[in-house]
Write a protein that binds this DNA or RNA. Sequence first.
DNA 1: CGGAGTTTTGAGGCTATTCAAAGGTCGTGG
DNA 2: CCACGACCTTTGAATAGCCTCAAAACTCCG
Lengths: 252, 252
Amino acid sequence: MDEDLPPPIDSPSDAPGRLGEFVSLSSRERSALAGLLEPVQHWPRHHVLRHEAAEPAHLYLLTHGWVASSIALASGKQQIVKVHLPGDLLGAPSLCFTTTVDCLTAMTPIAVHAISRSRLIATFEAFPRIALSLFLSAQKERVALMESLAVVGQAPAHVRIAATLTNLFDRLSERGDAPGGMFHMPLTQRDLGDLIGITPVHVNRTLREMDRLHLIKRSDQTISLLDVDRLRRIAGLPIRRYVFGSNRIASV
Amino acid sequence: MDEDLPPPIDSPSDAPGRLGEFVSLSSRERSALAGLLEPVQHWPRHHVLRHEAAEPAHLYLLTHGWVASSIALASGKQQIVKVHLPGDLLGAPSLCFTTTVDCLTAMTPIAVHAISRSRLIATFEAFPRIALSLFLSAQKERVALMESLAVVGQAPAHVRIAATLTNLFDRLSERGDAPGGMFHMPLTQRDLGDLIGITPVHVNRTLREMDRLHLIKRSDQTISLLDVDRLRRIAGLPIRRYVFGSNRIASV
DNA sequence: CGGAGTTTTGAGGCTATTCAAAGGTCGTGG
DNA sequence: CCACGACCTTTGAATAGCCTCAAAACTCCG
């Protein structure tokens, strides 16, 4: 099985990906979104898509691979604030600032479509339902950050790891990329540390302990969640249901 | 004492407050926003405006006082993810979920206008520029959370406190509520702890140490930042400039 | 005046950090 | 094909920062 290679999003109707997740868009709206996408670009692992404190001229739609969004502190440490997966829109938080807020780094080989900031804003004004959809997606990202903050602020290392792994599992599962709790895990232990606010050394000891408890199994760059339910209970976060399906905001 | 009570926002043109911060709205748009506001409600300190896991039928525009948005973990601990000040829109993160994400608690006596969720969404579709404006505000909130996460994840206690105090100072200063670095500080040391992920005992020792170093001075429920520049350097976060003024997105 | 919540202080313990180094993996170039 | 370097993982030992428990002093409010 091609379990760690999600199908690239190529056809125009799929192109907007998660951009219309909360609002069912008309075909006119979907093609307006697809029209924003510049030709696909491919980049290798470790490529910096956009530095911190740069000119925020573009956003990116990630169609393949993983991208970390990170913030550097004066102390020299950095926090990864989000690991982006395929379908995610990158760079939106910098939209209201004169200079980019986060650094976007490829954690795997990636494929992205650039999106012009000014054209996106023009599309907002022409297509209010697209604006509504992206607004709701932004709120969803806010909630993800709120939960990360809660876990990093209040929980010990093994809980932070459990929360991170179940979160990745859930998001990968939406595209069928984590069958049987197993998925490709390109983050190094240092990356994981930067993500959850823990030293790589301590990440190692904690992972090793979770391994010993048969919560996870690691091999190569692959991880298996052996007991997702128990990991969720350890993480201590509620399962959230999106406004979707029947509640999804219908087409006009 | 009335000296630290900011003037309430009452006239219809002011009512939208920060809702139009990034887009200059027409008077028609402004009155559409003002029309969303239900009559003002007043609540005492410690009142829970909206519990976690409740029905998300309303948002709130805060016009007076401080409100904490918090998330509870299974461990019994809670994280305050944001301290809202007058002009802030409360409850938006829950918009795309079937159940509310955060708990909204008054930290002072407050005044709020409820906003119907469904009417807000209808307004989005009718007024694309309002949608754009609220979208940008949501991105700004996202950045605030990203910075909180970075500080809580990577910095020791005194840095977290410096970042929190300068952030409050900056936001209060926009409305002239922190003259000379002095402002009313209704958060208890326990609240501060819940906000930055530190035990109240350790918050106390750290505040006391910062007091000794002449960085801050505390009395009553009031705090003075004696050296804002040094506090900013300790916090280690860049000063961000908003897309505003000449860059502000003009009226059609 | 009593009671509840907040601030302050002390002592001891635990989690996570720092520093250091060895062993492993992988890609690259000789 | 092997040797090398770069990076990652693993392990150990000592330490620092923060937590827990506990209790006293203080403030505020009824």
